[in-house]
Protein backbone atom coordinates (compact mmCIF):
# COMPACT_ATOMS: atom_id res chain seq x y z
CA UNK A 1 0.00 0.00 0.00
CA UNK A 2 1.37 3.37 -0.94
CA UNK A 3 0.24 6.95 -0.83
CA UNK A 4 -1.31 8.64 2.14
CA UNK A 5 -3.68 7.89 4.96
CA UNK A 6 -7.28 8.82 4.25
CA UNK A 7 -10.30 9.02 6.56
CA UNK A 8 -11.44 5.71 5.15
CA UNK A 9 -8.44 4.01 6.70
CA UNK A 10 -9.95 4.70 10.09
CA UNK A 11 -13.57 4.01 9.29
CA UNK A 12 -13.64 0.32 10.11
CA UNK A 13 -14.39 -0.69 6.55
CA UNK A 14 -12.43 -2.62 3.97
CA UNK A 15 -9.65 -0.05 3.63
CA UNK A 16 -9.17 0.02 7.38
CA UNK A 17 -8.94 -3.77 7.49
CA UNK A 18 -6.40 -3.65 4.68
CA UNK A 19 -4.30 -1.13 6.54
CA UNK A 20 -4.24 -3.30 9.63
CA UNK A 21 -3.69 -6.61 7.90
CA UNK A 22 -1.26 -5.52 5.24
CA UNK A 23 0.68 -2.65 6.77
CA UNK A 24 0.55 -2.78 10.55
CA UNK A 25 0.06 -6.35 11.71
CA UNK A 26 2.90 -7.91 9.66
CA UNK A 27 5.38 -6.01 11.82
CA UNK A 28 4.09 -7.77 14.93
CA UNK A 29 2.86 -11.18 13.91
CA UNK A 30 4.62 -13.71 16.09
CA UNK A 31 4.15 -16.69 18.36
CA UNK A 32 2.64 -14.36 20.95
CA UNK A 33 0.51 -12.65 18.38
CA UNK A 34 -0.33 -15.41 15.86
CA UNK A 35 -3.46 -13.84 14.47
CA UNK A 36 -5.39 -10.61 14.47
CA UNK A 37 -7.79 -10.66 17.40
CA UNK A 38 -9.54 -7.98 19.39
CA UNK A 39 -7.55 -8.67 22.55
CA UNK A 40 -4.02 -9.95 22.97
CA UNK A 41 -3.35 -12.67 25.50
CA UNK A 42 -0.45 -13.39 27.79
CA UNK A 43 0.23 -15.15 31.08
CA UNK A 44 1.87 -13.76 34.11
CA UNK A 45 2.47 -15.41 37.45
CA UNK A 46 2.69 -13.05 40.37
CA UNK A 47 2.46 -9.30 40.80
CA UNK A 48 2.52 -7.16 37.70
CA UNK A 49 2.83 -3.49 36.85
CA UNK A 50 0.87 -1.64 34.20
CA UNK A 51 1.74 1.74 32.75
CA UNK A 52 0.70 3.89 29.83
CA UNK A 53 2.06 6.87 27.96
CA UNK A 54 1.15 8.85 24.91
CA UNK A 55 3.65 10.23 22.45
CA UNK A 56 3.03 13.40 20.49
CA UNK A 57 6.58 14.47 19.64
CA UNK A 58 6.89 17.02 16.88
CA UNK A 59 8.54 16.30 14.48
CA UNK A 60 7.95 12.53 14.54
CA UNK A 61 11.39 11.88 13.03
CA UNK A 62 14.44 13.53 14.61
CA UNK A 63 18.16 12.84 14.72
CA UNK A 64 18.80 9.84 16.94
CA UNK A 65 15.28 8.43 16.90
CA UNK A 66 11.63 8.75 16.09
CA UNK A 67 8.21 8.58 17.69
CA UNK A 68 8.08 4.79 17.32
CA UNK A 69 11.28 4.18 19.20
CA UNK A 70 10.24 6.66 21.87
CA UNK A 71 6.87 4.99 22.27
CA UNK A 72 8.49 1.67 23.09
CA UNK A 73 11.41 2.78 25.24
CA UNK A 74 9.47 5.47 27.08
CA UNK A 75 6.86 3.05 28.31
CA UNK A 76 9.34 0.24 29.01
CA UNK A 77 11.48 2.68 30.97
CA UNK A 78 8.53 3.62 33.15
CA UNK A 79 8.16 -0.06 34.02
CA UNK A 80 11.88 -0.57 34.50
CA UNK A 81 12.30 2.31 36.95
CA UNK A 82 9.59 0.74 39.05
CA UNK A 83 11.65 -2.42 39.18
CA UNK A 84 9.55 -4.35 36.66
CA UNK A 85 10.66 -6.48 33.72
CA UNK A 86 8.74 -5.16 30.67
CA UNK A 87 6.88 -7.93 28.83
CA UNK A 88 4.11 -6.83 26.51
CA UNK A 89 2.86 -3.62 24.92
CA UNK A 90 -0.25 -2.29 23.27
CA UNK A 91 0.13 0.01 20.30
CA UNK A 92 -2.57 2.58 19.60
CA UNK A 93 -2.06 4.88 16.63
CA UNK A 94 -3.88 8.10 15.84
CA UNK A 95 -3.01 9.07 12.28
CA UNK A 96 -3.74 12.36 10.64
CA UNK A 97 -5.39 12.32 7.24
CA UNK A 98 -2.60 12.83 4.69
CA UNK A 99 0.13 11.11 6.72
CA UNK A 100 2.39 9.30 4.23
CA UNK A 101 2.13 5.53 4.44
CA UNK A 102 5.83 5.26 3.77
CA UNK A 103 6.38 7.19 7.01
CA UNK A 104 3.99 4.85 8.80
CA UNK A 105 6.20 1.96 7.67
CA UNK A 106 9.24 3.75 9.07
CA UNK A 107 7.56 4.25 12.43
CA UNK A 108 6.32 0.67 12.62
CA UNK A 109 9.74 -0.64 11.73
CA UNK A 110 11.16 1.43 14.57
CA UNK A 111 8.54 0.16 16.99
CA UNK A 112 9.35 -3.43 16.10
CA UNK A 113 13.09 -3.09 16.34
CA UNK A 114 12.86 -1.15 19.60
CA UNK A 115 10.55 -3.83 20.96
CA UNK A 116 13.05 -6.51 19.97
CA UNK A 117 15.86 -4.58 21.63
CA UNK A 118 13.82 -4.25 24.79
CA UNK A 119 12.73 -7.86 24.73
CA UNK A 120 9.03 -6.99 24.64
CA UNK A 121 6.21 -7.93 22.30
CA UNK A 122 3.42 -5.79 20.90
CA UNK A 123 0.36 -8.02 21.25
CA UNK A 124 -2.54 -5.78 20.45
CA UNK A 125 -3.32 -2.41 19.00
CA UNK A 126 -5.74 0.01 17.50
CA UNK A 127 -5.71 2.56 14.73
CA UNK A 128 -7.79 5.68 14.26
CA UNK A 129 -7.65 8.43 11.67
CA UNK A 130 -8.47 12.08 12.33
CA UNK A 131 -9.18 14.75 9.72
CA UNK A 132 -6.32 16.84 8.38
CA UNK A 133 -5.40 19.61 10.80
CA UNK A 134 -6.61 17.68 13.83
CA UNK A 135 -3.48 15.72 14.65
CA UNK A 136 0.27 16.07 14.41
CA UNK A 137 0.80 13.54 11.65
CA UNK A 138 1.00 10.63 14.02
CA UNK A 139 0.33 10.23 17.73
CA UNK A 140 1.01 6.99 19.58
CA UNK A 141 -0.15 5.54 22.87
CA UNK A 142 1.49 2.47 24.34
CA UNK A 143 0.45 0.66 27.49
CA UNK A 144 2.93 -1.78 28.94
CA UNK A 145 2.76 -4.65 31.39
CA UNK A 146 5.80 -5.80 33.32
CA UNK A 147 6.57 -8.48 35.87
CA UNK A 148 7.29 -6.96 39.27
CA UNK A 149 10.57 -7.97 40.85
CA UNK A 150 9.86 -9.68 44.19
CA UNK A 151 11.33 -8.02 47.25
CA UNK A 152 12.18 -4.82 45.45
CA UNK A 153 10.59 -1.84 47.16
CA UNK A 154 11.19 1.40 45.33
CA UNK A 155 9.74 4.68 46.50
CA UNK A 156 10.90 8.25 47.13
CA UNK A 157 9.46 7.83 50.62
CA UNK A 158 12.40 5.52 51.35
CA UNK A 159 14.96 8.29 50.78
CA UNK A 160 17.02 9.11 53.89
CA UNK A 161 19.32 12.01 54.69
CA UNK A 162 22.75 11.21 53.34
CA UNK A 163 21.49 9.13 50.41
CA UNK A 164 23.27 9.82 47.17
CA UNK A 165 21.70 10.87 43.85
CA UNK A 166 23.18 9.36 40.70
CA UNK A 167 22.72 10.28 37.05
CA UNK A 168 23.45 7.55 34.53
CA UNK A 169 24.36 9.49 31.39
CA UNK A 170 25.02 12.95 29.89
CA UNK A 171 21.96 15.20 30.04
CA UNK A 172 20.14 17.51 27.69
CA UNK A 173 20.50 15.68 24.37
CA UNK A 174 16.95 14.65 23.51
CA UNK A 175 15.15 17.93 24.01
CA UNK A 176 17.79 19.84 22.07
CA UNK A 177 17.72 17.37 19.19
CA UNK A 178 13.94 17.65 18.90
CA UNK A 179 13.94 21.43 19.30
CA UNK A 180 16.61 21.86 16.65
CA UNK A 181 14.73 19.55 14.28
CA UNK A 182 11.32 21.11 14.91
CA UNK A 183 12.33 24.73 14.58
CA UNK A 184 14.92 23.96 11.91
CA UNK A 185 17.26 25.92 14.09
CA UNK A 186 20.11 27.02 11.92
CA UNK A 187 22.74 25.88 14.35
CA UNK A 188 24.19 23.63 11.71
CA UNK A 189 25.10 20.70 13.92
CA UNK A 190 23.49 17.34 14.40
CA UNK A 191 22.46 16.87 17.99
CA UNK A 192 21.27 13.32 18.61
CA UNK A 193 18.48 12.18 20.86
CA UNK A 194 19.64 9.78 23.54
CA UNK A 195 16.51 7.62 23.26
CA UNK A 196 17.40 4.29 24.91
CA UNK A 197 16.15 1.28 26.82
CA UNK A 198 17.06 1.74 30.47
CA UNK A 199 15.99 -1.69 31.69
CA UNK A 200 19.47 -3.23 31.78
CA UNK A 201 20.68 -0.38 34.01
CA UNK A 202 17.65 -0.72 36.28
CA UNK A 203 18.00 -4.49 36.50
CA UNK A 204 21.67 -4.05 37.33
CA UNK A 205 20.92 -1.64 40.17
CA UNK A 206 18.33 -4.01 41.62
CA UNK A 207 21.31 -6.06 42.90
CA UNK A 208 21.75 -3.36 45.54
CA UNK A 209 18.63 -4.56 47.32
CA UNK A 210 17.24 -2.16 49.93
CA UNK A 211 20.18 0.22 49.37
CA UNK A 212 18.41 1.20 46.14
CA UNK A 213 15.73 3.67 47.26
CA UNK A 214 14.12 4.64 43.98
CA UNK A 215 14.71 5.34 40.31
CA UNK A 216 13.32 7.76 37.80
CA UNK A 217 13.47 8.20 34.04
CA UNK A 218 14.44 11.86 33.44
CA UNK A 219 12.18 12.94 30.58
CA UNK A 220 10.30 16.21 30.16
CA UNK A 221 11.65 18.95 32.37
CA UNK A 222 15.00 17.21 32.51
CA UNK A 223 16.85 16.18 35.64
CA UNK A 224 15.68 19.40 37.31
CA UNK A 225 12.09 18.18 37.17
CA UNK A 226 13.00 14.75 38.56
CA UNK A 227 15.04 16.21 41.40
CA UNK A 228 12.22 18.55 42.37
CA UNK A 229 9.74 15.71 42.18
CA UNK A 230 11.86 13.55 44.45
CA UNK A 231 12.40 16.44 46.87
CA UNK A 232 8.68 17.12 47.02
CA UNK A 233 8.12 13.81 48.80
CA UNK A 234 9.98 14.86 51.90
CA UNK A 235 13.73 15.33 51.73
CA UNK A 236 15.71 18.28 50.48
CA UNK A 237 18.35 17.80 47.83
CA UNK A 238 21.79 19.35 47.43
CA UNK A 239 23.42 18.91 44.08
CA UNK A 240 26.61 20.08 42.41
CA UNK A 241 26.33 21.79 39.05
CA UNK A 242 29.82 20.59 38.12
CA UNK A 243 28.92 16.97 38.77
CA UNK A 244 26.29 16.52 36.08
CA UNK A 245 27.64 14.74 33.00
CA UNK A 246 27.07 16.94 29.94
CA UNK A 247 28.51 16.51 26.45
CA UNK A 248 30.49 19.58 25.35
CA UNK A 249 28.35 19.78 22.19
CA UNK A 250 25.14 19.84 24.22
CA UNK A 251 26.60 22.42 26.61
CA UNK A 252 27.64 24.66 23.74
CA UNK A 253 24.32 24.35 21.90
CA UNK A 254 22.33 24.97 25.10
CA UNK A 255 24.52 28.00 25.77
CA UNK A 256 23.91 29.34 22.29
CA UNK A 257 20.14 29.01 22.69
CA UNK A 258 20.00 30.26 26.26
CA UNK A 259 18.81 26.96 27.70
CA UNK A 260 19.87 25.09 30.83
CA UNK A 261 20.88 21.45 30.13
CA UNK A 262 19.47 20.46 33.51
CA UNK A 263 16.00 21.50 32.34
CA UNK A 264 16.12 19.86 28.92
CA UNK A 265 14.27 16.59 28.23
CA UNK A 266 16.11 13.28 28.04
CA UNK A 267 15.04 9.85 26.87
CA UNK A 268 17.96 7.76 28.03
CA UNK A 269 18.89 9.12 31.44
CA UNK A 270 18.28 7.31 34.70
CA UNK A 271 18.24 9.09 38.05
CA UNK A 272 18.74 6.73 40.98
CA UNK A 273 18.86 7.37 44.71
CA UNK A 274 20.99 4.93 46.72
CA UNK A 275 22.26 4.66 50.27
CA UNK A 276 25.57 6.49 50.66
CA UNK A 277 27.47 3.29 51.32
CA UNK A 278 26.24 1.79 48.07
CA UNK A 279 27.29 4.65 45.80
CA UNK A 280 30.59 3.15 44.69
CA UNK A 281 29.02 -0.18 43.84
CA UNK A 282 26.09 1.51 42.06
CA UNK A 283 28.45 3.54 39.88
CA UNK A 284 30.44 0.40 39.07
CA UNK A 285 27.24 -1.32 37.98
CA UNK A 286 26.14 1.60 35.82
CA UNK A 287 29.55 2.20 34.26
CA UNK A 288 29.79 -1.47 33.38
CA UNK A 289 27.10 -0.93 30.76
CA UNK A 290 27.53 1.06 27.50
CA UNK A 291 24.60 3.33 28.41
CA UNK A 292 26.02 4.16 31.83
CA UNK A 293 29.70 4.73 31.10
CA UNK A 294 29.51 8.36 32.21
CA UNK A 295 27.39 7.84 35.31
CA UNK A 296 28.12 10.29 38.11
CA UNK A 297 27.06 10.98 41.65
CA UNK A 298 25.55 14.46 41.51
CA UNK A 299 24.25 15.16 44.97
CA UNK A 300 22.87 14.17 48.34
CA UNK A 301 19.52 14.02 50.07
CA UNK A 302 19.45 16.32 53.10
CA UNK A 303 17.12 16.82 56.01
CA UNK A 304 16.83 20.58 55.72
CA UNK A 305 15.06 22.75 53.17
CA UNK A 306 12.66 19.92 52.64
CA UNK A 307 10.95 19.97 49.32
CA UNK A 308 13.64 22.11 47.72
CA UNK A 309 16.62 21.42 45.52
CA UNK A 310 19.71 23.52 46.19
CA UNK A 311 22.36 23.74 43.50
CA UNK A 312 25.97 24.64 44.20
CA UNK A 313 27.07 26.50 41.09
CA UNK A 314 30.30 26.34 39.15
CA UNK A 315 31.55 29.45 40.90
CA UNK A 316 30.67 28.15 44.36
CA UNK A 317 27.42 30.07 44.75
CA UNK A 318 24.19 28.49 45.90
CA UNK A 319 20.73 28.80 44.42
CA UNK A 320 17.50 26.89 44.17
CA UNK A 321 17.14 24.65 41.14
CA UNK A 322 13.55 25.24 40.19
CA UNK A 323 10.93 23.05 38.71
CA UNK A 324 11.16 24.09 35.06
CA UNK A 325 8.18 26.03 33.78
CA UNK A 326 6.56 24.98 30.55
CA UNK A 327 7.89 25.02 27.04
CA UNK A 328 11.47 24.89 26.00
CA UNK A 329 12.04 27.85 23.70
CA UNK A 330 15.31 29.35 22.45
CA UNK A 331 16.19 32.77 23.84
CA UNK A 332 18.18 35.67 22.54
CA UNK A 333 17.83 37.71 25.72
Amino acid sequence: MSGRITLEHGSGGALARELTEQVIYPYFQSQDYPELVDAGSFSLAGPALLTTDSYVVDPPFFPGGDIGRLAVFGTCNDLAVCGAVPLVLTLALVLEEGFPIADLHRVLHSVRSAADEAGVRVITGDTKVVPAGKGGGIYINTAGVGRATPGLELSPARIRAGDRVLVSAPVGSHGLAVLAARESLAIGTTLLSDCANLHPLCAGLAELGPALRCMRDATRGGVAAVLNELASTGMGMEVLEDAFPIRPLVAAAANLLGLNPLEIANEGVLVAVVAAGAEAQALRILRGHPLGREARGVGTAVADRRGKVVLETTIGGRRYLDMPRGLLLPRIC
Binding site: A186, G188, R247, L249, A252
Partner: peptide, 8 residues
Protein backbone atom coordinates in the same frame (compact mmCIF):
# COMPACT_ATOMS: atom_id res chain seq x y z
CA UNK B 1 33.02 26.79 16.17
CA UNK B 2 32.90 26.38 19.96
CA UNK B 3 34.06 23.02 21.24
CA UNK B 4 32.12 20.52 19.16
CA UNK B 5 29.46 22.99 18.09
CA UNK B 6 29.75 24.32 14.58
CA UNK B 7 27.41 26.77 12.92
CA UNK B 8 27.28 29.41 10.20
Amino acid sequence: RQDDLETV
